[in-house]
Amino acid sequence: MITFTSFPVAPDPYLARNDDAADYLPDSDYMDVDLEEESDAGSSKLTCPGESITSSHAFMRGHGTYVENEEVISSVAGLIERVNKLVTVRALRTRYNPEVGDLVVGRITEVQPRRWKVDANSRQDAVLMLSSVNLPGGVQRRKLESDELQMRNFFEEGDLLVAEVQAFFADGAMSLHTRSLKYGKLRNGQLVTVPPILVRRLKSHFYTLPCGVDLILGLNGYIWVSKHVKENEQEGEEGFDAEAVYSNKNDEIDEATRTAISRVTNIIRVLATHSIPLTDTLLLEAYEWAIEADVDLKDLLQEDIGDALIAAVTNR
């Protein structure tokens, strides 16, 4: 089946001329956001580029702002944040800003001497040192020359991995580590990408949905959807089995699980296009709605069904 649609139509300027709406001019007073009047520093407000935030005499300009005519003006669309006298605007649509301790999903782009370069949706490629991965034959041991020579046996170009941000280098690039049995190479599933702002910092970023699907929400907006692996069957429970941890082979995955993985992926895409932050409860509700409404898998991505899904899960 092949269907053609039209692009969403911009309002025709010749027709809008007759509309009453065209006479409406935004009230200029509305734009004035005075931080002095804002009672507590914790509250944040949305702003858009070119909008005057405050006076430059009383405040210092931070990221996402500039000064013109003695006023601090936003240069991006985002949330105004204030620390003492420093005003910054955190952009809504941006690359991932890493912080130490964040959980990220990344893809290896390069294998270099004693390190891997990892694409983690950040401004620079992240670095994964050979010394910060689990090596075969024991979790804690010194790296050897033989490990250096077989780095591609652990990770090679294109491989996906889940890791934690360990530290930053002087140039702002992040350093990752996978020194936990929860971290490491990813398999048995597929990746879906959302804007990083939609993934919030949570207590845990590993979820298991009751439909037999594991979910890893990377804070960089990369989300790994995979087949559920039972706790006691996870690799490395007893001792460390390097063969299994760095394996490229998928397990046997049945049809129902594949369908569930695709359905979860589509739901995440729908939620992301509607700019709705992802949580496990929301995903679960959406999944149940999709099952109850008996929506065909691929129809989830259609506009009207997506809207119905969003209406159903956000109104509860």
Binding site: D159, N188, S262
Partner: peptide, 27 residues
Amino acid sequence: ISLSKSEKAYIQSSLKASSSLRADGRR
């Protein structure tokens, strides 16, 4: 684009499965 071996295997085995399902649920 670069893709890991397991991702490739997942896509291929999904297509070759009897129901031939694709990543976004298409036939």
